[in-house]
Design a protein around this nucleic acid. Structure first.
Lengths: 118, 118
DNA sequence: CCATTAGTTAACGACTGTGTTAACTTTCTC
DNA sequence: GAGAAAGTTAACACAGTCGTTAACTAATGG
């Protein structure tokens, strides 16, 4: 519940790019090497590395421990990555339901409620 | 279910700004005038107008019909505004659950499942 | 009409994000 | 140890964003 605005902005911003969303989906299927992502997305390793940095800074993705070959870096989706975004969306949904109810009340008995939220 | 990547990018991008998220929340409480939003957020009318344009182009907000005073423009949150975002988040949640299940299966019976998603 | 009000748009400057090319680090392999 | 492989980082060019100031549109009120 306690999430900062900065955190939220970073998460939404990171998800505002199609390639990065695709990366998330690929990493949700299974953890993958950086190079593997670059191949899947047909993107240069440099470009992909920067996208990874964005996702890392947003806390959506993390680099897990070394494998046999210490050159390769394997990335995964962070467990609680989407909690801030989901919490915010849930709040929005609640507010929306409340406004809908206000309309409904007004429709059923206009003069009693007067206008919605004076 | 059928949402375009462009649409998604626009929505996430629009929500990646703290002021715009605040605007959404204010508009979810009740429809408001543009100037009212500017006052609430302590922002110049010009700056706010541009934020409104971003939200409009993302389909999150719309300008509803004229009131008594035709100079004022009243904005509301669009009903199906957050559907693409919520759908995408739901997909992510499903994929996450699936990966979690794969881990669980592997932990319970390592050699039968071999490795997750070869 | 003329001034005022509500709001948007245009133009400028500062800042940020993105892809490319090039250089660099670290690790493996022979 | 030399060279290749996997990634990251640096430097550049370019486009997009954001706020401010100024100009503009449209409607109201005397």
């Amino acid at each position: 519940m306690g999430f900062s605005e900065i955190e939220l902005s970073a998460a939404f911003g990171a998800l505002s790019d199609t390639s990065r969303r695709q990366m998330i989906r690929l990493l949700l299927q299974k953890p993958r090497r950086a190079g593997e992502l670059a191949e899947c997305l047909d993107m240069s390793p440099q470009a992909l590395s920067r996208h990874l940095r964005v996702l890392r800074k947003a806390g959506l993705v993390f680099e897990q421990g070394i494998e046999r070959d210490a050159r390769v870096r394997i990335y995964s989706v962070h467990a609680t990555a989407f909690q801030p975004v989901q919490d915010w969306m849930a709040q929005v949904e609640n507010l929306w339901r409340r406004q809908l109810q206000a309309f409904k009340d007004f429709a059923e008995n206009p003069r009693r409620t007067g206008r919605l939220k004076p």
